[in-house]
Design a protein around this nucleic acid. Structure first.
Length: 351
DNA sequence: GTCCAGCCTA
DNA sequence: TAGGCGGGAC
C-alpha cells in the first residue's frame, strides 16, 4: 500500500510548478508543433486512428507520405474494409511490421460492420478492436475526440519521469507511479472548450476544409495565427500532444537538447545533472540484420514488386543463404496471412 | 549501435 | 512478463 495511495513525494516540488510548466509547454507547442496532416482537427477520428497505428514503433516523419496516400485511397473504415489484402499490404510499403496493416483492415471491418462506419468514442470499445492497445485507444480518445484521458507512451513516460521525478523512466510496462503522475499533471478541461463535444464534430471533415489544400496537408509555413485558428483541442489533448512532441523532438532518449528545452528551468532531471542519462530504457532491441524479420521483410518486398505475379521459392533463395530460415519465414508469413501459397507452390500476396 | 506516438501471444 | 515483429534515421 505504500505504493498505491502514496503521493509522489519526489514530484511534489515540480508539481507545485505545474502551472508555469503548462504555460511554457503550451507556448512551445504553439510555436514548434510539427504541422502533421492529421493534427489540428484536419482529419476524421478514423484518420487519427490510422495515423496512430502507422506510428506504432515508427517515426512520424516516415509516416506522413504513407498516411497521405493511404487516406486518399481509403478515407474511411468502410473503404479499407473492402480493399483486397494485397493492395493493403502493398500500400503499407516499407513502414515495417506489416501485420499492423492486416490488423488495421480487420479493425476497419469491425468498425464498418459493427459500428456503422463510425469509430467508437469509447475507450473500452476502441481497445477491443484489433491492433488497438492502451496507447492507441487513449490517443484516439484524446486527439480525435478531445476526451480528457491520460495518454501513456514511451515519450510521455520519459518526459514526465525526467521533469517531475528527476530520473529516467524504467523499462517494461508503465509503473503505477508513472500512470498516477500522468493523471495528476493532466490539465482539466473547461466544458465549453471541449471541442468535438457535439455529436458529429468533424466526422466528415476529411479533406475539404479550406478549398484546395489537397495533398499537402500543410498550412503554409506556419503562420501561428492561422494555426491557432484551427486549434480547438482542449487543454488535456494539447498537453498530451505537447508532452509527446517534446519527447520526440527535444527530450529525446539519448541526447536531450536541454539547451533549447522550454522546461529546462523546471526539470528535476536536469537539475540533478542528468543522472544515468539513457539508462533504464526499454528492453534491449532485437537485432535486425540477419534475423527472420529481415528475411520476412525481403520476401514481402519481393512479392510486392512482383505486383500480383506469383513468385517461386527458387526466386527467393537469393534473399537468404539459410534455406531452413527461408522456409521458416515463408511459413510464418503464411501463418500471419501475409502471403498465399498456390497449388503450384508459388507465392503471392493474399487477395 | 540505439531508438522509435506498441501490440499480441505464450 | 518475455519475446517476436520492419526498417529507417542518426
Amino acid at each position: 500500500m505504500a505504493k498505491g495511495g502514496v503521493t509522489m513525494e519526489g514530484a511534489d516540488t515540480a508539481l507545485a510548478e505545474i502551472e508555469p510548466i503548462r504555460l511554457r509547454l503550451f507556448d512551445w507547442w504553439s510555436r514548434y508543433a510539427r504541422d502533421l496532416p492529421w493534427r489540428f482537427g484536419r482529419t476524421t477520428p478514423w484518420g487519427v486512428l490510422v495515423s496512430e497505428v502507422m506510428s506504432q514503433q515508427t517515426q512520424m516523419s516516415r509516416v506522413v507520405p504513407y498516411w497521405t496516400a493511404w487516406m486518399k485511397v481509403w478515407p474511411d473504415a468502410a473503404s479499407l474494409a473492402a480493399a483486397p489484402k494485397a493492395e493493403v499490404i502493398t500500400a503499407w510499403g516499407r513502414l515495417g511490421y506489416p501485420r499492423r496493416a492486416l490488423r488495421l483492415q480487420e479493425c476497419a471491418q469491425q468498425v464498418a460492420g459493427q459500428y456503422a462506419d463510425r469509430l467508437p468514442r469509447d475507450y473500452g470499445q476502441l481497445v477491443a478492436l484489433p491492433g488497438i492497445g492502451d496507447y492507441t485507444a487513449s490517443a484516439v480518445m484524446s486527439f480525435a475526440y478531445g476526451e480528457r484521458i491520460a495518454v501513456i507512451d514511451t515519450n510521455i513516460r520519459r518526459v514526465l519521469s525526467r521533469v517531475f521525478l528527476g530520473h529516467e523512466s524504467t523499462g517494461g510496462a508503465a509503473s503505477r507511479e508513472e500512470r498516477q503522475l500522468a493523471g495528476q499533471v493532466l490539465p482539466e478541461d473547461e466544458a465549453q472548450e471541449s471541442f468535438r463535444a457535439e455529436d458529429g464534430g468533424l466526422e466528415d471533415a476529411g479533406a475539404e476544409d479550406s478549398g484546395g489544400q489537397e495533398g499537402s496537408g500543410r498550412l503554409g509555413s506556419a503562420d501561428p495565427q492561422i494555426r491557432s485558428a484551427a486549434w480547438r483541442d482542449p487543454p488535456s489533448a494539447r498537453w498530451n500532444q505537447a508532452v509527446m512532441e517534446l519527447g520526440a523532438t527535444v527530450c529525446v532518449a539519448r541526447k536531450p537538447a536541454c539547451d533549447i528545452c522550454p522546461l529546462a528551468g523546471h526539470c528535476r532531471f536536469l537539475k540533478a545533472g542528468l543522472p544515468g542519462l539513457g539508462a533504464g530504457r526499454t528492453r534491449p532491441r532485437q537485432r535486425f540484420a540477419g534475423t527472420d524479420r529481415q528475411v520476412r521483410g525481403a520476401i514481402l518486398q519481393a512479392l510486392r514488386q512482383a505486383s500480383g505475379t506469383p513468385v517461386s521459392r527458387k526466386d527467393l533463395e537469393p534473399l537468404c543463404e539459410d534455406e531452413i530460415r527461408l522456409d521458416r519465414c515463408i511459413a510464418s508469413l503464411d501463418e500471419d496471412g501475409l502471403l498465399e501459397i498456390g497449388r503450384d507452390g508459388r507465392l503471392s500476396l493474399p487477395r
